[in-house]
Amino acid sequence: MSLSFTHRHVLEDRMSGYELSPNANHLAVARRPAIFSVLAHAGREAAVADALSAVENISVRTVSPSDWLAVAHVAEAESIVDSLAAIEGLSFVEQGDGQVLMTISGPDVRTILAKCLAVDLHPDVFVEGQSGSMMICRVAGNLARVATDTFEIVVPRSYAGYVFDELREAGREFAMTRGFAA
């Protein structure tokens, strides 16, 4: 991760202002996540998917049948790199400085997300632990349900400001607060 990118978070300016304690509905931005783009070689998809689920300290996000994101909130990149490098038939690259990880949570989270997402997020359809790449505020990102009322969003860094503003606007009627994750 290059120093200039991590030194100052891309959403830093949008956080300044009121110092609010989190409300029930809250949008938290991870400061320094480690996000790996992981690809399986042709024919090795199933084996790589199995091996990935055994790697510690990461959560695996589905992108396509041969393509995943490995997400870690706290950058312990070295140990994860070692674990990923040990898997056969897999190519990966660290993209933590090119992607922004946000967590949106609260009782009204589905109503908020419904304003900028066209995917059915009913708990019977999009179950806990499920994830997928989709259009989030017209930006191609990745959404994961980590708990019943908690979702994690990964969007490219260059679009993150726009997505953040849209989500904040969507959450205004529910008094959604925002801040960097502790």
Binding site: P65, A118, V119, D120, S133, M134, M135, A140
Partner: peptide, 11 residues
């Protein structure tokens, strides 16, 4: 077949 029901704007 991989992602489920999606709006046409994604394609």
């Amino acid at each position: 077949p991989h992602c489920g029901r999606r709006p046409k704007e994604e394609f």
